[in-house]
Design a protein around this nucleic acid. Structure first.
Lengths: 155, 155
DNA sequence: ATTTGGTTTGCGAATTCCTCGCAACTAGAT
DNA sequence: ATCTAGTTGCGAGGAATTCGCAAACCAAAT
C-alpha cells in the first residue's frame, strides 16, 4: 500500500516541510505520492486528475501551490521538455540519480539520459564558482535516432 | 554601423531562412539585431521595446512569431532562468561558444558559465544515442557564492 | 481532548504570457 | 513590373498560472 511503501520518504518530507514552516497536509501528501508513483513527467492538470481519484474535491490551484512548495524543497523537479506542446510545465519526483531529458522535436518522444559526466560537470561548476547548487536541469532537443534516419531518407 | 557589423551573419541568416521557406523581413532583421546587440537574455516585451526604437509600429505578436522562427533556425536560444520572475521566457543570440546559465535563487543574478566538459557531455550523448542535437539548455539554480556566504553567517 | 493561531484550501476572478484569424502588405522569384 | 506565397498588425481569444478571501485544517501547547 502507498502509505507503507513511502513511509520513510514521507517522514523526511514532513521534516523538510516543517523546517520551512510548512505543513504536511493531505493534499500535499497525495500530490507528492502521485508524482512518486508516476515516476514520469506529468503536467499540472494530469497531476490533478490522478490526485482526484483519492481526493475528489481537490482544486487545480492547490495543485499549483503544492507543486511550488515541493519544488522549493527539492522534492520534485520542473521541466518544460522543449515546449513540445504549448508552454506548460512538467513535474517529476526527484530520485537519487539525476538525469537529463532529451525531447525529439519531430516525434515528441522523451528520453531520460544518465551520464557520470553530468555529475562531474555539476561538481566542477560548484567547486570552481563556489555556488550552492540546488537544481540542475539539462534539457536537450533535436531528433531521436529513428527520426534522424527518416530525415536522411527524404533528402 | 549595425548593417556592416552583422553583414556576414545577416547573409547567412537569409540563407537559413530561405532554406526553410521563410523570408528575411525588416522586423525579423531588427529583432535579430536587437538580440545580437544585447548579447544578453531579454524577454519578449523588452525585445519589443528595443526593436520599436527602430520600428515604432512593431507588434508584440510579431516579436513572438519572430522569436519562434529564429529559435527554430538555431539563431537564438530560449531560457527560463529558473523562472525567477513569473513564467516568461528569455532569449539570447547564439554564439559559437555554448554556455550554461546559473541563476541565484536568492539575489536573482545570472551567471554564464563555460566548461569544456559541457561540450564533451553533449558530444558523448549524441554519439551514444544517435541523436541529432539541435538545442542543449543547461540551467542551474541555487545560491551564488556571495549568497552562500550570507546564508552561513545567519546560521 | 481541547484550544489556539497561524497555514492552507477551495473557489472564482484576475493576470500573465502567448497564439490565432484575417485583411492588408511585402519579399523575392520570374 | 508583376505575381504569389509568406508575413504583419491588430484585436480577440486561449492556455497556464496566480490571487484574494472566508472557511477549514494542522499541529503545538495546554
Amino acid at each position: 500500500m502507498v502509505l507503507t511503501k513511502h513511509f520513510k520518504e514521507r517522514r523526511s518530507v514532513t521534516t523538510q516541510l516543517r523546517e520551512h514552516g510548512l505543513r504536511l497536509t493531505r493534499q500535499r501528501r497525495v500530490i507528492a505520492d502521485v508524482l512518486q508513483q508516476a515516476g514520469e513527467h506529468l503536467d499540472a492538470p494530469e497531476v490533478l486528475r490522478r490526485a482526484q481519484q483519492q481526493m475528489p474535491g481537490l482544486h487545480l490551484a492547490t495543485v499549483y501551490r503544492a507543486l511550488e512548495s515541493l519544488k522549493k524543497l527539492g522534492i520534485i523537479d520542473e521541466l518544460d521538455l522543449m515546449h513540445v506542446n504549448g508552454h506548460g510545465h512538467f513535474y517529476e519526483a526527484r530520485t537519487n540519480k539525476d538525469h537529463m531529458h532529451f525531447t525529439c522535436q519531430r516525434c515528441g518522444s522523451v528520453f531520460e539520459i544518465q551520464d557520470p559526466l553530468f555529475e562531474k560537470l555539476k561538481t566542477q561548476i560548484m567547486d570552481r564558482h563556489g555556488f550552492t547548487l540546488r537544481v540542475a536541469r539539462l534539457e536537450l532537443g533535436g531528433l531521436c535516432s529513428s527520426c534522424t534516419a527518416k530525415i536522411k531518407e527524404v533528402t
